[in-house]
């Protein structure tokens, strides 16, 4: 199955904006290039335009005049979804209640005129690949949420699409199942080397699945980058706040040093009267010995077994959170220093 799969398409969006009939601007003009075989995650809060972007790529919405969608360089802007050869997994799965599992999976082949015996055999292969061949003859309303999700994915893959589009495919499931299926989808997408576009509002899903993540806000791109770039070097406060817990310290840059109430730190930046230093809780090293750059007082310690979460405050009252090895014994009121890896901080 995996070796005769159509290779993934390169997808390019040029100036794609979307204004709905009621005048709502869902998407500002957007340019985006997706490499063949890449898994791109569109991440953002509801109403940020991520689903609209996906639907424009799918062909379920057309961009405003001037916008263009290219598949492998060919303009498909005017092609309806049924002529684009995409696979799509919907949030509600959109499985056909009037068909059995195998009929659902074979449907794409049926409309392509593949003979019944062959299409059932091919649908059977995909079900086997998804390890749900035992469910082939079930009706859709006899399936659990996780099973439906797998059937939806199998159905989308059975037509060997050039790109698979996933619209919040795990949102309807409970947390444990979500994590399990996330790993399964990740393995599958990598094995098939298919171009995938995955829409989610869940940062953990985005970080785990994406080759690249597009963080969106108010119909525009806030940042594009690898999961590491997004996490460790967020472009702005919005991205930093949306993805993970972020510490921020207010201060100023003078002579290559970031000066704040907690102390000073060497940075590579031009002088600035107001700057914010942002970093993740787990990137800071706690040093109990005095003398290092930034000094804090311990407010609370939450022991978590392997790690401990430490809540600290600086002289001006600004608070940060960090993670420390469990061996270090700390108690409220202790004076500590922290060391920061310059490659894992962001100055905004």
């Amino acid at each position: 199955m995996s070796n005769n799969h159509t290779p993934g398409a390169a997808i390019t969006l040029v100036g794609c904006a979307k204004t709905f009939a009621d005048g709502t601007r869902a998407l500002e003009p957007l340019d985006l290039a997706i490499a063949p075989g890449e898994t791109l995650v569109l991440l953002g809060p509801s109403g940020c335009g991520k689903t609209t972007t996906l639907r424009i790529i799918a062909g379920l919405e057309s961009p405003d005049a001037g916008g263009k969608v290219l598949f492998d360089g060919a303009d498909v802007t005017r092609l309806p979804i049924e002529k684009r050869n995409v696979g799509m997994v919907f949030q509600s799965y959109a499985l056909f209640p009037n068909m059995s599992v195998v009929e659902n999976v074979a449907y794409g082949l049926r409309v392509r005129g593949v003979a019944k015996a062959e299409r059932l055999a091919r649908a059977g292969e995909v079900l086997e690949m998804m390890r749900i061949d035992a469910l082939a003859d079930r009706r859709i309303d006899q399936l659990s949420g996780g099973q439906r999700q797998r059937v939806a994915l199998a159905r989308a893959l059975a037509v060997r699409p050039r790109v698979i589009l996933l619209d919040e495919p795990l949102t309807a499931l409970d947390a444990a199942l979500r994590e399990h299926l996330r790993a399964e989808i990740d393995g599958l997408l990598r094995r098939l080397a298919i171009t995938a576009i995955y829409v989610t509002h869940d940062q953990a899903e985005a970080l785990a699945l994406g080759d690249r993540i597009v963080v969106m806000r108010h119909g525009a791109i806030a940042q594009i980058g690898t999961p590491r770039e997004i996490y460790f070097r967020p472009a702005d406060d919005f991205v930093a706040g949306f993805v993970g817990v972020t510490n921020r310290l207010e201060g100023a840059v003078r002579g290559g040093r970031f000066e704040t109430a907690a102390g000073a730190l060497a940075v590579e930046a031009a002088d600035r009267a107001a700057a914010t230093l942002a970093f993740r809780p787990e990137t800071a090293q706690l040093c109990v010995a005095a003398g290092s750059g930034l000094r804090f007082r311990v407010d609370q310690v939450h022991f978590q077994g392997a790690r401990q979460r430490v809540l600290l405050s600086a002289a001006d009252g600004s608070r940060i959170v960090l993670e420390a090895a469990a061996e270090v014994v700390l108690s409220a009121g202790d004076e500590v220093g922290i060391a920061l890896d310059p490659s894992r901080i962001a100055l905004v």
Partner: peptide, 23 residues
Amino acid sequence: DVRTLEEGAASLGASPWQRFIQV
């Protein structure tokens, strides 16, 4: 939710007529 069902069928390549008759 026939709209989503139809979008699902369309994504699999079904023409409007096939969608109407089969879904």
